[in-house]
Design a protein around this nucleic acid. Structure first.
Length: 851
RNA sequence: GCCCGCUUGGCUCAGUGGUAGAGCACUCGCUUCACACGCGAGGGGUCAGUAGUUCGAAUCUACUAGCGGGCACCA
């Protein structure tokens, strides 16, 4: 579910397209499909958005109070939230709006409370006082995943701490001098010979008058800095751990607003952390205790949302223990290989590595917008966790309860989506029907945040994986290879692309993206827009020229007595259906798009329509004509079905216009529905119509036509000028193919006459070309031919063949090749050499004939 | 620091152990009665580099370079 605050971006459009292609495709295959739409309440984002609105009215959420603030958020959600669902309608996605859910809906909230209570009762959720990531700007704790590490140029300060006994003391290196006010130890590596005498001694912490011990800890790297580390348990995660190991006091010197506390001393209390840093450095310098300052590059933790530097603080929060959940997910992967990531490399490893290093998850947030934690406190401070306040009162035996003010991390509810959105914990029909789901489409950025957590929760509460496959889409970059982002202002608005090129064209482009990153280019969408236009025009031709005929799927069921081009198009369309099925089965969207594009444009438009035109547009009504019209309409109808999952708008529009469309065309599963291409059967490949002979024969015809057109072009013969075409074909089968298709060949070549014989007998002044299968073609050009030019053209052709023959002969000449390569491969090379030899001989003859 | 991905014609990208593909761009020709968002014909690549495995490598392996990701508690 996208964020309620979000609006459609290219990443959504990409995922939605692929999801919708699969949904529509599977539906047309007769499956009961469900794409359940919804929105996420997006805790922090939404709260910030509404807070900004309040600011315009010179109000803060605190002035408004929690209850009225939350009301205000709901009002905002009703009035301006969920832009994205309107935009999804524009995308043409076939989601089930009747099941739309919002993560704060009552039923989903109930699922959240149920999960919380159960996990608490099992001891997996606990409340604890630990060091956490705190955002001083948003005033909330954050999980590790909401913190980003950003490399930054900084300074490393070397601070000297004199020994308590007046000895040499020790120098520590730090990037955060202000935290020294909270130091409660100095640590050295136990094996570091330099510091053996100091271990167990104390040093005098400057500016504070405190004495702190020197402890030995393996964590300390003797190579880094001075080999001695200041230990600030209250303000650094590592120091926190060391503090626990050595039972050091946790002295809090920085508060939640990132200001120094009273404990930092009178000189510093109330100062901002950075001002305090400057002051500490200044004082050390005055005291002669600042040994040096060096430039140092390190990573700093920032709030992913507001980019404020995170302050590690000790705080009481709610945590979810991850070990058991993690183990279940890892076991699912090891034993059942689920989920199946596509592409498997690198995502499966990324996912499992992350799980293996998983630590407890901080689930509470100091926000008002979200699921309030279902925990109540008695006046004595006793905690009661319950599904409702009533239940809590019963459990606590008192009505004097205060609910924990915190809410849960947004992802706590979204991780339940695969089952909470279908009614869990009730045992609903939807759950029974649709859980586990088949496939999740997602960007790689939320594999940890969302995907892994859904797996863990699915295993925990449903006992099964939430989805079988996870398809990870690529990222759409801008034209310069940069990630699109709001701050860079380099994002492309999908809606503008829709306006400019149409939704279908945009979808086709997006579907062909696959799972690698690509740079956005309007040019590619434009070419698919042209494709949509081609579909439109081809359909227009069919509709304008097929009076009296109607779509009839039976007309495509056998190819018995049909002409070559008819047998050929049936073979092509069935092969295309086969290829598209295979491609989609393995999420090869790009291949599916290519297969459809080339079938429709090259095979159907460029050849089939042209070849059948004569029959279809014949003046006289005849059975032959109506059969041709029926076939043309029926092939078009099948093609539209094949294209439909990718291009829903244009295919539906055209399909509805076709004569003869009716309930009869619907998939048996939807027989009673109103006619719509959405519920027709996706064409299955009919193996018996895949006709290699027809494809080979058609290839011969195409080869002939292309060669003669080439002669026309190279010889500068006007397209309107009729030309005689002489064909010589020693092979009888080939002669039959040409003579059976004389009309079509003649039409496409604008031939004045066509003669076919076993031996080419052409005047000297002819342009010639060698065809495959030993055939030749000549175009007599008395008075038009430039002998030198023609000789050059043939010579060029000969050179091409010679180059190819050279390579092949070298291969065959290698004795190891004949020995070790498979026989059919060797035979293939021999056959090709023979073919080239024959063509070359014919070319030589042609050149001689020119004189 | 560790891990991973990418590098194919001018551009954006497919693809594959056995004759290099598409779209766009480019050149030439075309108001051919569906379409100039079109039709027809062309030109253009030693598939980043080096070494290896193999009868054969652009495809597999290793290393190198450039670019881009992800992960990590080095003060």
């Amino acid at each position: 579910p996208p964020n309620v605050t979000g609006s459609l971006h290219m990443g959504h459009a990409l995922q939605h397209t692929m999801m919708d292609v699969l949904t529509r495709y599977k539906r047309m295959c007769g499956y009961r499909t469900l794409w359940l739409p919804g929105m996420d309440h997006a805790g922090i984002s939404t709260q910030l958005m509404v807070s900004r609105e309040l600011k315009k009215e010179n109000l803060t959420r605190h002035e408004l109070g929690r209850e009225r603030f939350v009301e205000r958020v709901w009002k905002w959600k009703k009035e301006s939230g969920g832009q994205i669902t309107k935009q999804m309608r524009r995308e043409g996605v076939s989601v089930d709006w009747s099941r739309e859910k919002f993560t704060m809906d009552e039923d989903l909230s109930r699922a959240v409370r149920e999960v919380f209570v159960r996990l608490y009762e099992e001891g997996m959720i606990y409340r604890g006082n630990r060091i956490v990531n705190w955002c001083p700007n948003d005033q909330t704790v954050l999980s590790d995943l909401e913190v980003e590490k950003i490399p930054q140029a900084g300074k490393l300060y070397y601070l000297s701490y004199p020994a308590s006994d007046g000895g040499a003391g020790v120098t520590v290196a730090t990037t955060r001098p202000e935290t020294m006010l909270g130091d409660t130890a100095v640590a050295v590596n136990p094996n570091d010979e330099r510091y053996q005498s100091l271990i167990g001694a104390t040093v005098a912490l400057p500016l504070t008058g405190r004495e702190i011990p020197v402890v030995a800890d393996e964590f300390v790297d003797p190579e880094f800095g001075t080999g001695a580390v200041k230990v600030t348990p209250a303000h650094d995660p590592n120091d926190y751990d060391m503090g626990v190991r050595h039972s050091l006091p946790q002295l809090v010197v920085i508060d939640p607003h990132a200001k120094m506390t009273e404990a930092a001393g009178a000189d510093f209390a109330g100062l901002d952390r950075y001002k305090a840093r400057a002051k500490v450095v200044e004082k050390f310098e005055e005291l002669g205790l600042l040994e040096k300052v060096v430039d140092y590059e390190f990573s700093i933790s920032k709030c992913e949302r507001c980019k404020t530097v995170i302050e590690p603080l000790i705080s009481t929060q709610w945590f979810l223990r991850m070990d058991e959940l993690r183990d279940a997910a890892l076991q699912l992967l090891a034993r059942d290989h689920k989920p199946q990531f596509v592409p498997e490399v690198p995502y499966e490893k990324v996912y499992s590595n992350w799980l293996e290093n998983l630590r407890d998850w901080t689930i509470s947030r100091q926000l008002w917008w979200g699921h309030q934690i279902p925990a109540w406190y008695t006046p004595e401070g006793e905690v009661v966790v319950a599904r409702s306040e009533e239940e809590a009162r019963v459990k606590a035996g008192t009505e004097d309860l205060t609910q924990d003010p915190d809410v849960l991390d947004t992802w706590f509810s979204s991780q339940l989506w695969p089952f909470s959105a279908m009614g869990w914990p009730e045992k609903t029909k939807d759950l029974e029907t649709f859980y586990p789901t088949s496939v999740l489409m997602t960007g790689r950025d939320i594999i940890f945040l969302w995907v892994s957590r859904m797996v863990m929760m699915g295993m925990k509460f449903m006992g099964r994986e939430p989805f079988a496959d996870v398809f990870v889409t690529g990222t759409i970059l801008d034209a310069h290879g940069q990630r699109m982002s709001k701050t860079k202002m380099n994002g492309i608005d999908p809606l503008e692309v829709f306006d400019k090129y149409g939704v279908d064209a945009t979808r086709l482009k997006l579907a062909s993206v696959g799972s690698t990153d690509i740079r956005w280019s309007d040019k590619q969408v434009e070419s698919y827009r042209n494709f949509a236009n081609k579909i439109w025009n081809a359909s227009r031709f069919c509709l304008l020229n097929c009076d009296g005929a109607a779509v009839d799927p039976d007309s495509l069921k056998s190819s018995g007595q049909l002409a070559l081009h008819d047998r050929w198009i049936l073979s092509r369309i069935n092969k295309t259906a086969r290829d598209v099925h295979a491609a989609l089965a393995s999420y090869q969207f790009h291949e599916a798009v290519q297969a459809l594009y080339h079938f429709f444009w090259d095979d159907f438009c460029d050849w089939y329509i042209e070849l059948t035109k004569a029959d279809v547009t014949a003046e006289q009504a005849a059975p032959h004509r109506s059969a041709a019209r029926t076939r043309l309409l029926s092939v078009l109808e099948q093609a539209l079905r094949l294209l439909h999952p990718f291009m829903p708008y244009i295919t539906e529009e055209l399909w509805q216009q076709l004569p003869g469309v009716s309930k009869q065309l619907l998939h048996p599963a939807y027989r009673e529905a109103e006619p719509t291409i959405m519920l027709t059967a996706y064409p299955e490949a009919n193996q018996s119509l895949i006709d290699d002979a027809a494809e080979w024969q058609m290839q011969a015809v195409i080869d002939l036509i292309t060669r003669v057109r080439n002669i026309r072009s190279e010889m500068n013969i006007k397209p309107s000028e009729p030309i005689p075409v002489l064909i010589g074909a020693p092979d009888e089968k080939l002669r039959k193919v040409f003579s059976a298709n004389t009309n079509q060949i003649s039409r496409l070549l604008r031939a004045s006459e066509i003669s076919i014989s076993d031996q080419l007998d052409a005047p000297r002044a002819s342009a010639r070309a060698v065809l495959f299968g030993g055939a030749e073609v000549a175009v007599p050009l008395a008075g038009l031919i430039d002998f030198a030019q023609e000789r050059q053209r043939l010579q060029k052709e000969k050179e091409k063949l010679a180059a190819e023959a050279g390579k092949l002969e070298a291969q065959l000449g290698n004795p190891q090749f004949a020995e070790r390569a498979p026989t059919e491969k060797v035979e293939e090379v021999r056959a090709r050499i023979a073919d080239i030899a024959q063509r070359t001989a014919q070319l030589v003859q042609s050149i001689q004939n020119l004189g």
